[in-house]
Design a protein around this nucleic acid. Structure first.
Lengths: 185, 185
DNA sequence: ATTGCTTATGCAATAAATTGCATTTGATCA
DNA sequence: TGATCAAATGCAATTTATTGCATAAGCAAT
């Protein structure tokens, strides 16, 4: 399961609790792999079972105890082995495109509104990514190796959002002509 | 469930059997929503239960019988209702990016090989899409409305693959410098 | 005081996806 | 004549994911 390795990957740099990981899945790796806290806790239990990670209970003043999970040597080895295995291209799963695919069933104006909304969502996400790029990855050539790898995944996010934005623009323009015509008639 | 509506969408133009649908999911809508025959048959049973589709048994000479499923009025209405509901941006789920994210754990050369492989996969897919565009969507402005909608979803596929290709190129170049350095040393 | 938020974890039930197997009929090929 | 492939459908078991709920402890604000 990929989630397994996404978690291991997040534990490479430093140990984290289930709660921490849940947060991490909101940023960094979460930009290309989502997981809920339920999935994470279940998976952590399994990983501990396999001894790929080790838990350390941390008593905290105030907060409830937390379990800090640390990548074990076996876990690190498993991760390394997984990384070099070839993988498939990610299958696309996109609701919006299904809707557009049979868009002729509903009002074009309605669809255009939804496209405009998505345009804005993508623009916002792009802005977030560009901000991260500026703040954390200035002069990418000078970064240490590990940061370079993080950087290129961010670049993928940026390009992806730019692509969507461009498509939304193109499509909105293309379909707007359609509305104009039906108003004329 | 989105699969529900993906199937309904495929039945808009003409009735199809489970087997036909499985094929359709390899092309057209399958470019942005995948489904196995198991999922499809199960979902067809449910949809018939709900009366969103109606089956008609077709005796064939030679082949086993097939059940042709036709979209009902209720089904069509349900589809229309779904289309105009706003939806989320598709969450990205990409194994390759997780691997790259912690790429420093393995040999850079190995990673570059995998990136090159993906570059080729994307190139191939792009070629398929471009071919479809040329063959089925010449002069897009002149297409009837329904075809225009199909067309713009193909455009999204094209742009998506182009984006990936560009990222692979950028990344391979960026990381190649790294290998060059380590060879020098 | 009580309401609500954040940190922190998890159970239980349901829903969905995946995987392996199984069947029927004919066509094709060696 | 036996093997295998394509069309066509489906059951059963397992694995994953989702959803709703639950707890516990402190902090902040009204």
């Amino acid at each position: 399961m990929t989630l397994t390795y996404a978690i291991l990957a997040l534990l490479v740099d430093f140990p984290q609790s289930g709660y921490d990981l849940t947060k991490s899945f909101a940023g960094s790796i979460g930009f290309f792999w989502k997981a809920t806290h339920q999935q994470i806790y279940r998976e952590l239990a399994r990983l501990e079972d396999k001894q790929w990670i080790h838990a350390e209970a941390i008593a905290q003043d105030g907060r409830p105890d937390k379990k800090l999970y640390r990548l074990s040597e076996t876990g690190r080895a498993a991760l390394m082995k997984w990384i070099v295995e070839p993988c498939e291209m990610a299958p696309v799963k996109d609701e919006l495109l299904i809707k557009v695919f049979v868009g002729e069933l509903v009002s074009c104006t309605k669809l255009l509104q939804e496209l405009e909304r998505h345009r804005q969502l993508h623009q916002k996400k792009l802005a977030t990514y560009l901000d991260l790029e500026q703040r954390f990855f200035p002069q990418p050539e000078l970064l240490p190796l590990a940061r370079k790898y993080r950087y290129v995944t961010l670049r993928q996010g940026i390009r992806y959002e730019q692509e969507w934005l461009a498509w939304c623009d193109e499509t909105i323009q293309f379909l707007s002509a359609e509305v104009a015509v039906s108003v004329e008639a």
